[in-house]
Design a protein around this nucleic acid. Structure first.
Lengths: 210, 210
DNA sequence: TTTGTAATTAACAATTTTGTTAAACCAATT
DNA sequence: AATTGGTTTAACAAAATTGTTAATTACAAA
């Protein structure tokens, strides 16, 4: 077996672990189940990754990194006028979550069940985010001063955007039970949701004429 | 020991079980931990409730019932004009979730991890909800025809309201890591969020004058 | 007081799950 | 061919967790 095949085997375990952890969470995941899905004995899993805990952290670290990227996505394209930039940011954020539909629920559950573990990770991203936030806040301040939009605290805005975009996916199976027919065509439903979320935020920040 | 005290002991287990299941989920919960928290031997837990599964379903059933009530809350006070009714509905829904902050994440996780089990439960609430939805939809149709508000599909509206209200609590610990200072005063933060959610939806459904 | 029923306890059993280890294996290098 | 290194397997061990049971207690009714 050459080096490529070894990497491959390690990779198979990682892929299976990602699937298992993201859908079942740490407590619901079984290392034997991961090994089986990867097509290896469970001793191999321990050989490469030590413990369930260590394997899990490999996945969590990667997912946290990916999730941080989505924070950048919501900043939108820099060259557009502020309001269009926000519009593009919402769309990009929605698309990102649509590509990683299990990610938010997974990370939320992790942080909820082990808050202490992620305080370090938090500090790391908080610095980056604060800078981005203050940049966007300044843009908003200026645009509002020019009467191009209503003023809003960037953090308030971000929470609203994240709520609308993320909840759709976090609660998807739950809403399906109540709104089965309304959501039967997933592609169509998501396209409508994306448009609706953009509309909702745009309404909120567009200049009102009394 | 009289009957009251027996009920009391059963109740102690239920209270402890609720706490454990809602915060840790089914997989993370431990029957021994529940028994310990309730101050009884774990054999007592099995004596009263049979299995972990059965105890869990007791909790889930109750929580599903409570959650259904919140669907009614979002319908608002019937005597108000449509737009004010929706406003009161958003506020009532927000307050309800604020009183049961763990409920949404718990139920979402349950439905996600065992979708098949809840198809029956779904049918039960779907009937009630469809009637309420069509009533509110008719009100919206009329109000929109009178030019009092923008037309919107009631299901689209409901999803937006639920997204804004529920996500705040589902992702609270997660957002705290990014926005610690912004959220340090929980009461103030929640009050602002509630107002913001109402504003956001009101903007979306109020008549636009072009 | 006796008797019957439910409640309680402690000890045990069964299963699941994670983790370990010693031996076998394979491939490349000397 | 022998050595060396990492890889793989099967069997085992340890721990945790759920569930059971037989014996004991408490209590109320006959």
């Amino acid at each position: 077996m050459d080096n490529q095949e070894k990497r491959n085997k390690e990779q198979l375990i990682l892929v299976a672990a990602e699937q298992e952890f993201l859908t079942k969470g740490y407590d619901g995941a079984r290392t034997t189940s991961i090994a089986k899905a990867a097509g290896v004995t469970h001793a191999m899993l321990h050989y490469y990754f030590g413990t369930k805990e260590e394997l899990f952290e490999r996945i969590v670290d990667e997912k946290f990194r990916i999730m941080s990227q989505s924070m950048l996505a919501v900043m939108g394209e820099p060259d557009l006028p502020t309001i269009e930039r926000i519009r593009s940011g919402i769309a990009a954020h929605f698309d990102f979550i649509a590509k990683n539909p299990h990610l938010p629920r997974f990370l939320i559950n992790e942080v909820v069940s082990r808050p202490e573990r992620y305080s370090i990770l938090q500090n790391r991203i908080q610095g980056v985010i604060n800078i981005l936030f203050s940049q966007l806040q300044e843009e908003i301040d200026n645009a509002a001063a020019r009467g191009e939009m209503e003023w809003i605290d960037v953090r308030t805005l971000l929470i609203s955007i994240m709520s609308l975009n993320i909840f759709t996916f976090v609660a998807y199976p739950f809403m399906e039970t109540m709104l089965g027919d309304f959501m039967s065509d997933r592609e169509k439903f998501l396209a409508e949701r994306k448009a609706e979320n953009i509309d909702t935020i745009m309404c909120r920040i567009k200049t009102k004429q009394p």
